[in-house]
Simulated scan of single mutants.
Amino acid sequence: MSTTQSERLRGLLEPLVSAADLDLEEIELSRAGRRRVLRVVVDSEEGVDLDACAELSRVISDELDETDAMGEGEYQLEVTSPGAERPLKEHRHYVRAKGRLARFQLHEGGELVARILDLDDDGLDLEVPGVKGRKPTARRIAFEEIAKARVEIEFSRKDKKEEEA
């Protein structure tokens, strides 16, 4: 998608997403056969449910129909959340992932899987799980050390409510 079209779509969609108390995370325009697919990824502090995606999809669809932002031709609109293994790109993503296990690819090379305990403007305080019965260790990494980061799915993760009880 061209920068101009991307900026135009972002300018058109951001107020609609904000009005629904959501954050616009990503806009992706791709091809699926003859048709184009516009994928709009949204999120919030509390997450996004299916009803919110459906309602926002109707609002965005109406707006796109009233403008020529998508040009001529067919397109499919998808409004979705980042998913369970969401990428961590902005500070607010790390805030939302506090307490979660994440996989970090580091600029210096190597990979790290650790739980996000706390964060500030400069970096993260992590708990690296112990291996083979060893105790977990604390580690601090700066944001500039991180090449990529993604939340890890935990099937045996205790719910926060259980931990607080």
Rank of each mutant, 00 (worst) to 15 (best):
E164D: 13
L112K: 00
H107S: 10
P129K: 05
L77T: 05
D21L: 08
P129Y: 07
R10M: 04
R103L: 10
I153S: 08
R134V: 06
G83A: 02
E78H: 05
D23E: 09
A147P: 01
E14C: 04
R140C: 03
R34D: 11
D118E: 15
R58G: 08
T4L: 09
D121L: 13
S6R: 10
L29G: 02
D125N: 11
R35Q: 12
V151S: 01
R10P: 02
E45Y: 13
G47R: 03
R140A: 01
A97K: 02
I146S: 03
G133D: 02
Q76W: 08
D65K: 04
R100A: 12
D51M: 05
P136C: 03
V95L: 14
D118A: 12
A54N: 07
L56D: 01
E111V: 07
S6F: 08
L117D: 10
E154W: 02
A19C: 06
I116R: 03
T80Y: 01
E163Q: 12
R134K: 15
L88K: 03
E162S: 10
A138V: 07
H107V: 15
I141Y: 02
R10G: 04
S18H: 11
V17I: 07
R36A: 11
E154Q: 11
V79Q: 04
K132A: 14
E145D: 09
V59G: 04
V42G: 04
E152S: 05
R115Q: 09
D49L: 03
L126H: 00
R100E: 14
I153T: 10
G83I: 07
T67E: 08
P136Y: 00
S61A: 11
L117W: 00
E78L: 08
Q76H: 11
E111G: 03
Y94C: 02
V41R: 10
V79D: 02
A54D: 15
R39I: 10
P82H: 00
R103D: 11
R100T: 06
P15N: 06
R58Q: 11
K132C: 07
V59M: 04
I116T: 00
S61L: 09
G47W: 02
G109P: 01
A147G: 10
R115S: 01
E28I: 14
E154M: 05
V42T: 04
E46I: 14
R134F: 11
T80R: 02
T3R: 08
A84G: 08
G123I: 04
